[in-house]
Simulated scan of single mutants.
Amino acid sequence: MKTSSKTLISLFMPILLAGCSVPGSYLTVQEGEKDPALETSSTDIISKINLYQLTASEIDNFKTPEVIAKVNPQLDKEITEYEYFVGSGDILNITVWDHPELTIPAGSYRSASESGNWVHADGRIFYPYIGFVEVAGKTTSQIRSDMTSKLSKFIESPQVDVSVAAFQSKKAYMTGAVNTPGQQFISNVPLTLLDAINQAGGLVGEADWRNVSLTRNGTEEILSLFNLMQKGDLTQNRLLQAGDIIHVPRDDNQKVFVMGEVNDPKLLKIDRSGMSLTEALSNVGGINQVAADATGVFVIRTSLDNSKVADVYQLDVSNSIAFILGTEFELQPKDIVYVTAAPIVQWNRIIGQILPSITGFDELSQGVDTIRGW
C-alpha cells in the first residue's frame, strides 16, 4: 500500500500543478510568474490515469450498485439435504430397548456424554457382544442399521437407538472483530455463517462487516455481512463445514485521506454505513472558501485497470447543487480526496502543501488520525 500510494501521489500531483495543460484541473499561474512545474511535460503521466467528470449526466455510471434482498436456493437445498457424519472424538448415546444391561444409565451425577460411547481415534467404538464397530464417516441412521444387524445374532429383533451425545469432531473457527472469537462445534443442526456470527456474540463496534473472509480448504472468499444483515442478500450466507475459518477484520483500513484546500484536512474512517464524497468534505469542515478552487475537487483511486495507475474523479462544486451529486458518489477505502488551490494562490504555497503530504503519507497509512500544519 505504501509503495503504490506514493507512486499514485507522485504521478498525480504534477497534473494538479500543471493545470494549464490538463483539462479539468483549472489551475493557472498569474501573468508574468514562472514555475518549473510548467516546464515538465505531463503527457506520459496523463496516459497512466483515467480522468472522469462527476456530472449529472455521468454520475449514474459511478454509483455503487444498489444491493437488494435475494434468496439463496443453493443454501436452502444444502440445509434441506444436510446430514451429520460422526467423527473421532464424538460421543454416542446407544440404547437397546428392553436390554438395560446394554445401556449405560446416565444417572443423576453423569451426563449423557459422560455415560456414552467415545469414538476413538481409529473411528471405532466398542460395544458388548459385537465388539468394535466402525462408526466414523457414517450417519446415526447408518450406525443404527449396522448395530441392529450385528446384535440380531445375539438378540431377537433388537430395537436400537443411536444419537450423538456430544459433538466434538468437527469445528469451525471464528476470529477477528467479534465479541467471542473461538471454535464452534458443528452438530446435526446446520451451522451457517450468520448463525456463527450470532453465536460469537455479534460484531464489535470496530468490525469491517463488508469484507468478512471465509477460508475453506486454502481458498478464501470475501463476503459482506452488510449486504446480508442490512440488505437481506442471502446469497452472502454460507453453510459452514469442518475446518472453515471465518475472519471479521477490524475497520482500521477503512480510511480515506482528505487533503488540500479544506478547512480541516485529516484522515477519516469510513463507518459501517459507508461514506460519500459530500460526507467526507463535510467532515473536514468543507472547502476553504478563500483559497480553494471549487471546480477542482478530486478523488484519486488506485485503478483496477492494470494499464493505468489511478482513476481520478473530478467534481465541480462551484455550484452548491453539485454537492447533491457528491452524495451519490461512494468513497472506497484508501481513496484520496484532494481540493486544489485557487488561481490567486502562489505556486510556492501549493508546493508547500503537497510536499508534507507526500513525506507524511507513510504516517497516514500507519494510522495517524490527523495531519495538520500544511
Rank of each mutant, 00 (worst) to 15 (best):
N211Y: 11
I79H: 00
L214F: 06
P265R: 06
L315I: 14
Q53T: 15
S152L: 10
F257R: 02
E261H: 04
E328D: 12
K255Y: 01
L234V: 03
A112N: 08
S318C: 05
K170N: 06
V189L: 11
I79M: 15
A56S: 15
S157E: 14
V368F: 07
N227R: 15
D369G: 03
I350G: 04
A18L: 03
A242R: 08
I130L: 06
D44A: 13
E206L: 10
S357K: 05
V345W: 08
R110M: 11
T139F: 14
I104E: 06
E66Y: 12
L364K: 06
I344W: 09
A342Q: 04
V22N: 01
R349K: 14
Q183E: 14
K171Q: 13
W118C: 00
V119K: 01
P128T: 05
G367S: 07
N306V: 02
A37D: 12
A106F: 08
K269Y: 03
G123F: 09
T175M: 12
L214R: 06
L203K: 00
S213M: 10
V317T: 11
R238E: 13
A172N: 03
F361E: 08
P36C: 07
L304I: 03
Y52S: 04
T3G: 10
I59M: 12
A37Q: 09
I49Y: 05
P158V: 12
N50P: 00
P65I: 10
V345K: 11
L27A: 02
A341K: 09
D60L: 14
N93A: 11
T180V: 13
L304V: 04
F85H: 10
G296W: 08
L17Y: 04
L277W: 02
F167V: 05
L364C: 05
S5R: 08
G137L: 13
T139Q: 02
L214T: 02
S213E: 07
G205V: 06
G360N: 15
V162S: 04
A322P: 00
V204M: 14
T215P: 03
A280V: 07
T359W: 12
L240N: 03
K150Y: 05
M275L: 15
K170T: 02
R250K: 15
E363Q: 14
R301Y: 04
I91H: 05
F361W: 12
E114G: 15
K231H: 14
G285T: 04
I270Q: 02
D264L: 09
N50T: 05
L16A: 02
V299L: 09
N61I: 10
G202F: 11
R110K: 15
R216S: 03
M275I: 13
D264V: 06
K77I: 09
W347T: 13
A177I: 03
N237H: 06
E83V: 11
K153H: 11
Q314A: 03
E279A: 14
D76M: 13
P73H: 09
N319P: 00
L38V: 06
F226Y: 13
G232L: 11
S303K: 06
I350E: 02
E114M: 12
S57K: 13
L239S: 01
K138G: 01
P36W: 07
F185R: 08
T235E: 15
N306L: 12
G131V: 00
N61W: 07
I15V: 08
A207V: 06
Y26G: 00
